[in-house]
């Protein structure tokens, strides 16, 4: 088992923890936290393959991670704004209780 395998297993573990959080928690913010963990697992995969891949001078993995971090930051901002707006309308942030389309 070389270091690339260890990084990929760590990434798989991080993804699974994020998936478990997103699937089981009831609070909408914690679902978003699980999604963030899954995005970070993908970033770790990109960096591991960039480091141990055949052509690190091309910097493809690094560029992908930079853009992924920017998109994830935008996603977190919009997601939290949506959660705050839903809380104002429905007085709850439990994802089970937000089950109607009509505000």
């Amino acid at each position: 088992m070389n270091p690339l395998h260890q990084y990929l297993l760590l990434s798989a573990l991080l993804f699974s923890v994020g998936l478990a959080g997103a699937l089981t928690r009831r609070h909408a913010i914690l679902v978003l936290v699980g999604v963030e963990l899954m995005l970070n697992a993908a970033n770790l995969n990109f960096l591991a393959f960039w480091r141990y891949g055949p052509n690190p001078e091309a910097l493809t993995g690094v560029m992908f991670v930079i853009f992924a971090i920017a998109v994830a930051a935008a996603e977190a901002a919009v997601g939290l704004a949506l959660i705050i707006s839903i809380y104002r309308h429905l007085r709850t942030s439990n994802v089970d209780e937000v089950d109607r389309l009509k505000g």
Binding site: A12, S16, L23, R26
Partner: peptide, 26 residues
């Protein structure tokens, strides 16, 4: 009340995903 919903099904799905990924990587 509970802070999780259907914890065992969610955890088993996550565990299955982890086992699949780890098996694929190895």
């Amino acid at each position: 009340g509970r802070v999780t919903v259907a914890p065992w099904s969610g955890l088993s799905v996550a565990l299955a995903v982890f086992i699949t990924l780890a098996w694929t990587v190895i």
